[in-house]
């Protein structure tokens, strides 16, 4: 009888009209069946808050009803989390950021690893695959073009490439003056290794702003080379798909290959 009275009362109908679904977000330790508060887990290992950029819903009315618990960051939060990567891009080429040639959404995707939030948000895996293939191709072409220098002076013989007679013999089997044997040099092979790419990624401070989920607290302090290398590959992939091969090749040669070449 009590239930019937409650349902028949005007306050019940008022409640139904204002609240479609009552959702309580749980924070703290995980509880079975409880929805977790996104503010609790959408945080990078270094403590930066993840603020997803939500597209305008294609069916606004329906999505409001069914996905009222969906988390979406405020514009200020989004800009705050993208600051480090934007400043890096700005230092390379101011037009990239000033003229919005790379969207905020793509920038965030570069920094998001597949492990973050169970792949719910756009992540960088596919970008890194195409990015690495392009990096490899560009690096190989760059390497064989470096072998184009003709032997005209003493400096050529003092180059490590021709110190031994064995390597000199390879010179006699150049193809259109390109020395393909250079690709097997140790320093050339090492450039494309995961550890070297991770090293570059760390030097560009990407590791601090990366969104990923470590398996444990100990894992944060480990090398995690694969994850850091993937950011760099994804960055190249994103540039390739948005700006084209010519610009990306210029980017790789200017920022990745040549600075290292000078050090060597």
């Amino acid at each position: 009888m009590y239930c019937i009275k409650a349902l028949a009362s005007p306050s019940y109908f008022l409640w139904r009209s204002t609240f479609a679904r009552n959702i309580v977000l749980h924070s703290g330790k995980r509880q079975p069946g409880a929805l977790r508060d996104p503010n609790d887990y959408l945080i990078s290992p270094s403590g930066i808050k993840y603020s997803p950029i939500k597209e305008v819903s294609k069916v606004p009315e329906a999505s409001e009803a069914s996905e009222s618990h969906e988390y979406s960051g405020s514009p200020e939060e989004i800009q705050e989390s993208l600051k480090p990567i934007k400043s890096y891009f700005h230092s390379i080429d101011p037009d990239l950021i000033d003229k919005n040639q790379i969207s905020d959404k793509l920038l965030l995707q570069i920094l998001t690893h597949k492990s973050f939030s169970h792949g719910h948000f756009p992540y960088s895996e596919k970008l890194s695959v195409i990015g690495f293939k392009f990096l490899k191709k560009t690096y190989f072409i760059n390497t064989i073009h470096q072998s184009l220098q003709k032997p005209i002076d003493q400096e050529y013989f003092t180059n490590s490439k021709f110190k031994s007679f064995h390597n000199y013999k390879n010179y006699n089997f150049l193809i259109n003056e390109f020395n393909f044997a250079d690709l097997f040099r140790k320093d050339k092979i090492n450039f494309l290794s995961v550890s070297n790419l991770a090293k570059i990624s760390r030097s560009k401070q990407f590791s601090k702003i990366l969104f990923w989920k470590p398996t444990s607290k100990r894992a944060i302090n480990k090398d995690n080379d694969t994850i850091y290398a993937e950011v760099l590959k994804a960055l190249i992939g994103a540039l390739l798909l948005s700006k084209g091969a010519v610009y990306t090749q210029y980017f790789i040669e200017k920022n990745l290959i040549n600075p290292l070449g000078k050090k060597n």
Binding site: L106, G119, F121, Y123, S124, E125, L241, K243, G244, A245
Partner: peptide, 19 residues
């Protein structure tokens, strides 16, 4: 193709596989 000289507009970037 991205390697074309007259490449534009930017390609669609996929969000990643559905898990």
């Amino acid at each position: 193709y991205p390697s074309d000289e007259d490449f534009s507009p930017a390609l669609i970037v996929d969000h990643g596989d559905v898990i």
